[in-house]
Simulated scan of single mutants.
Amino acid sequence: MSSSECEQGREQQQLMLIDCFRNRLVATIQVEPVLDFITFVEEADKEEIRAMKLQKGNQAAVNLLLTKITRQPPAAGWFGEFITALREGGCSHAAEYVRLDTDYGISPSLEAQNDLEVKLIDILAPSLIDKLLPFDISVYCFTSGILTQDDVENIMSETKQNGNRAGARKLLSRLIMKPPGWFSTFLGILHKTEHGDLANLLAGNDNSLSETEEPAEESKNVADEQLSTEEQNNMDNAKPDKIAVEKNEQPPEDLYSCPIIEEENNENSKNSDENSILSGISVLDLSRNAESVHDLAETSICSSNDSQLENGSSGVSGDENANSGKVLCNLIGRVCIESI
């Protein structure tokens, strides 16, 4: 195999590395400082890439840069220049992905830990942006080696123009592009710059969440205890009533009964009882009167018969006695009817 064929095979491997780690490179390359160290890209293409950054952001510009490199491979030696541009432009993390030397690659475990740290910054970004002082922190980060001079200048310029929140946002966006190990250094810088609360928050030592959860749990337990106490009191209050009902064996009062209606019903029943008693007494008296009249009639008839016998013996006619007896019977019958 000739040297030219070996060079072509090596170039194909380099292009495959860029395509394989494209997403990682897009996330870890800062396009403007890298373009300053690249000479194999034409100036017109550089201006197009910078315009893309202004219009759609850094990642879109990096994606365009990688597309131009992979579609039309530049002259020989471009790959080494690209690696140098990444390192000098403050993107050494991206350079580790496309190195052919296996001894300098990033281990999967270290890469996974770095991904978790970047995700943590994204989640806690609102709290960090509100409290970070970008001037002081960016200077400490530069002296610690995790930020470049270009990073510090961009952070300070953004802070002067748009305030601390914009500067803190720029600071975080540059930090998460750095090689693994930046997170622990950043925590130490937060302690030095009197941002210990943020350092504890990022390290998981913040007790504010547990303090808010404990009172809620305590209030829940107190509410449960109060509820159980009320239920016990209700059961205790209900027991004497139950015992009293069992002891008296009287049905509970009807809730729908009306005392006034009950009194009227009682009076009506009393009046009906009195009327029935009076009617019974009057019937009894009438029956007694009828019996007395009947006895009187019988006595009168007997007397008339006796008088008839006497008159017969004394010469009085029988027709007269009979007529007088009839008159007396009619009178007695009329009296009985009127009395009834």
Rank of each mutant, 00 (worst) to 15 (best):
K239Y: 15
D254I: 02
Q226L: 04
A223F: 03
E249Q: 13
M235C: 11
D224G: 08
N248F: 08
E213H: 04
A244Y: 09
D224L: 10
M235I: 12
N221H: 02
N237V: 10
Q250G: 08
S219F: 11
E253H: 07
E253W: 01
K247A: 13
V245D: 07
N234V: 12
N233T: 15
P240D: 04
K247F: 14
D241W: 04
P215T: 00
Q232R: 15
I243E: 07
E230I: 10
P252W: 02
D241A: 11
Q250R: 12
T212V: 08
K239W: 15
P215K: 03
D254K: 00
S210H: 10
K239M: 15
T212H: 10
T229G: 13
P215V: 01
P259H: 06
E246S: 02
Q232E: 15
N237R: 14
N221I: 02
Q250H: 11
A216V: 01
D241Y: 06
P252C: 01
N237E: 08
S257V: 08
V222Y: 02
E211N: 14
K239S: 13
E217M: 01
M235G: 10
P240L: 00
Q232G: 10
D236Q: 13
E249I: 09
K247N: 11
T212N: 08
P252N: 03
K220D: 03
S257H: 07
K220L: 08
P240E: 02
N234E: 15
K239R: 14
N248H: 06
P259V: 06
I243L: 11
K242H: 11
L227I: 04
V222L: 07
E253P: 09
E213P: 06
E231D: 12
M235P: 08
N221C: 05
E217N: 08
S257A: 14
A244D: 10
E225N: 07
E246T: 07
M235F: 09
S219G: 06
P240W: 01
P215D: 00
N221P: 00
V245T: 14
E213R: 05
K220I: 03
D254Y: 00
S210D: 12
S228K: 14
D254S: 00
E214I: 04
N233G: 12
K242W: 09
Q226T: 04
P251Q: 09
E213S: 02
N237A: 13
E246Y: 09
T229F: 14
C258K: 05
A216H: 00
K247D: 11
E217D: 06
Q232W: 15
E213T: 00
N233R: 15
